[in-house]
């Protein structure tokens, strides 16, 4: 495995009862890139995240992270190896303050900071995502957009090598989306590799270096955003309307 491949997913399959949620998914993610993951609802995108970070270990295949086989590791062990993620449905620690939420991220990730240093990191990260003024509020009292930022801040505070982002833009208004896209690009510029699931197409197409398309658990295409947008199989399976792809690229959707 070459040194600059941070994540390699090899023939990963996962089944839930009679449903084949993932079948034979294989891809490489080079360090420093943003890889987009798209597909219709139920295509297995979040399941893939869960297979990578150990929530539901895959039945077949391997996941290699930084050259290490992490298949079947518990989520906390994966986190301690330097992989962080956000959840599609935000998971704030409601009765703790915003600051404490983010400190927890810094404390228990791979850098394993003591509380004092974690507080400094948390303050920096909160400044970065624009939640600094709300640091002493309870996480449960934030609105959805703020909770999304908190989710991101908590993951960032662990200073991960690889960040899995699960629909951080969903439910945000256009202005908030534009801000969040800038945040994601800045994170990449700091050297963090990103695997991102997104339904807001133009945003995803704008930030991603490469894109993978899943449909019914199968990987049906992989390529640059332009290639994906022009791939007839993708258009058929996912976009339905060829014109939509063009609109998408122009950022109208």
């Amino acid at each position: 495995m070459s040194a600059d491949i941070i994540l390699r997913v090899e023939n990963v399959s996962k089944r839930f009862g009679g449903l084949q949620a993932l079948s034979d998914v294989t891809f490489d993610l080079p360090r420093g890139q943003i890889l987009g993951l798209i597909g219709p609802n139920g295509a297995g995108k979040t399941t893939l995240f869960n297979a990578i970070n150990g929530i539901y270990p895959p039945e077949e295949g391997r996941v290699l992270f930084n050259g290490q086989d992490i298949t079947g590791w518990k989520p906390y062990r994966v986190a301690k190896a330097g992989l962080a993620r956000t959840h599609q449905i935000v998971q704030p620690l409601n009765d703790l303050t915003v600051l404490e939420n983010v400190m927890a991220g810094a404390c228990f990730g791979h850098e394993n900071h003591p509380l004092g240093r974690a507080r400094e990191i948390a303050d920096e990260v909160l400044e970065f995502v624009g939640l600094a003024e709300r640091r002493d509020l309870l996480a449960g009292s934030l609105n959805v957009a703020q909770k999304k930022r908190l989710e991101l801040a908590r993951a960032l505070a662990s200073h991960p090598y690889l960040l899995l982002l699960d629909e951080v833009l969903a439910g945000l208004n256009p202005a908030e989306i534009a801000e969040m896209v800038q945040v994601v690009l800045k994170i990449r510029d700091q050297g963090v590799t990103i695997l991102i699931i997104e339904h807001v197409m133009h945003a995803l197409m704008n930030v991603s270096d490469r894109v993978i398309v899943l449909d019914y658990g199968k990987q049906i295409a992989e390529g640059t955003p332009e290639e994906i947008a022009n791939n007839p199989r993708v258009i058929e399976a996912y976009l339905g309307d060829p014109k939509l792809a063009e609109k998408m690229l122009r950022g109208e959707v």
Partner: peptide, 15 residues
């Protein structure tokens, strides 16, 4: 306290 609030999320954070 992270475990109290959400044990699954706590594990994902490395606890």
């Amino acid at each position: 306290m992270a475990i109290r609030e959400n044990e699954d999320a706590a594990e994902v954070m490395g606890i």
